[in-house]
């Protein structure tokens, strides 16, 4: 078990190093940030001074090494735009994004898992057809379009919910539905296929042959096995929703990480974009690590064989 965890951690570190290099290069392809930082019509000397002030005159290799050295000590640099440490900005926004992500995950699980189970147990009946239709809609309707429609219906016409911003549960409801909708559909599909696979297995046949009640066969023998991939997806989805709900957060003016990233990209705020992406990457790699370890706990085969 210890060797298993050690190996997983090593993989995670390698992933993060590759991610940091990639994002470092990609932000630098968006253009010169100094042009946006200085006032319009600033002289070449002024631009050079700003460039030097932020260390942008040095070679990319030096910049990267400095960036990584600082990152290892937990220092992700200062935002060009806000003149504040990136980590401070990130953690300021994190609770909002977490709230949105948790609500959206909850919605996706509450819709996706029961619907997936029903459609697998009642496969090829009209229950299954309804579920398949919902999944198709979920995967093909873009979240931003659904978000706009929700705003039109519930805010503009019915005036039940606020159009944007954060506050109480009424604010989080629409963005969470718009965000969780797509994930509910993917959860449904995964639950259905995973459940179907397990229900067709020999050990489920044997469980039926033992004369166990259907409820026991489905809820205990099948569900536990079918749930492993579903939980993984839910965990990974949560982190993705927290860190990458850019469009939904922009539509609903939700003060979360996605909007922070969006602003950073538009202002060529290199440290901000790098910092947000690396912190997001850290969380995504982290959740995958946790999921892998949790697998090993749930499934005794993984615990011993790897």
């Amino acid at each position: 078990m210890a060797a298993f965890i050690a190996r997983r951690i090593l993989y995670s570190v390698v992933t993060l190093v590759i991610l940091s290099g990639t994002i470092f290069l990609i932000v630098r392809l968006t253009g010169d940030p100094v042009l946006l930082m200085a006032e319009a019509g600033a002289s070449t000397e002024d631009l050079a001074r700003i460039r030097q002030q932020w260390g942008l005159d040095r070679s990319w290799a030096v910049q990267y090494v400095t960036f990584m050295q600082n990152a290892l000590t937990g220092e992700l640099g200062k935002s060009f735009n806000y003149r504040l440490p990136v980590s401070e900005l990130y953690f300021q926004r994190l609770p909002n994004s977490l709230q949105l992500g948790l609500f959206a995950t909850l919605i996706s699980l509450l819709i996706g898992v029961p619907a997936g189970i029903v459609s697998a147990v009642k496969v090829n009946t009209w229950w299954d057809s309804i579920a398949k239709g919902v999944a198709l809609l979920g995967l093909s309707i873009p979240g931003f379009w659904l978000g706009l429609v929700l705003i039109l219906v519930f805010s503009v016409s019915l005036r039940w919910l606020p159009t944007s911003g954060a506050g109480d549960w009424r604010h989080v409801l629409m963005p969470a539905v718009a965000l969780g909708w797509y994930f509910a559909a993917s959860m449904l599909r995964l639950t259905r296929s995973s459940m179907l696979e397990v229900l067709g297995s020999e050990y489920i046949k044997l469980a039926r042959l033992k004369g166990l009640p259907d409820v026991v066969v489905i809820a205990m023998h099948a569900f536990k096995n079918a749930l492993i991939p579903v939980f993984t997806l839910a965990g990974v989805n949560l982190v993705v929703m927290v860190n990458a709900a850019v469009i939904i957060e922009v539509i609903f003016a939700w003060p979360g990480i996605g909007r922070l990233l969006y602003e950073g990209i538009f202002q060529r705020d290199f440290p901000l974009v790098q910092g947000v992406v690396i912190l997001a990457g850290f969380m995504i790699v982290g959740i995958n690590l946790v999921v892998d370890i949790a697998y090993a706990v749930i499934d005794p085969r993984i615990r011993l064989t790897r």
């Binding site: 020999e202 042959l209 166990l212 023998h221 536990k224 096995n225 005794p300």
Partner: peptide, 19 residues
């Protein structure tokens, strides 16, 4: 089933629940 008529399946690797 299981009480008066029981069955042994073909594949011992697949007929036990791994969890």
């Amino acid at each position: 089933r299981g009480r008066r008529i029981a069955m042994i399946l073909q594949d011992p690797m697949a007929s036990l629940n791994p969890l």
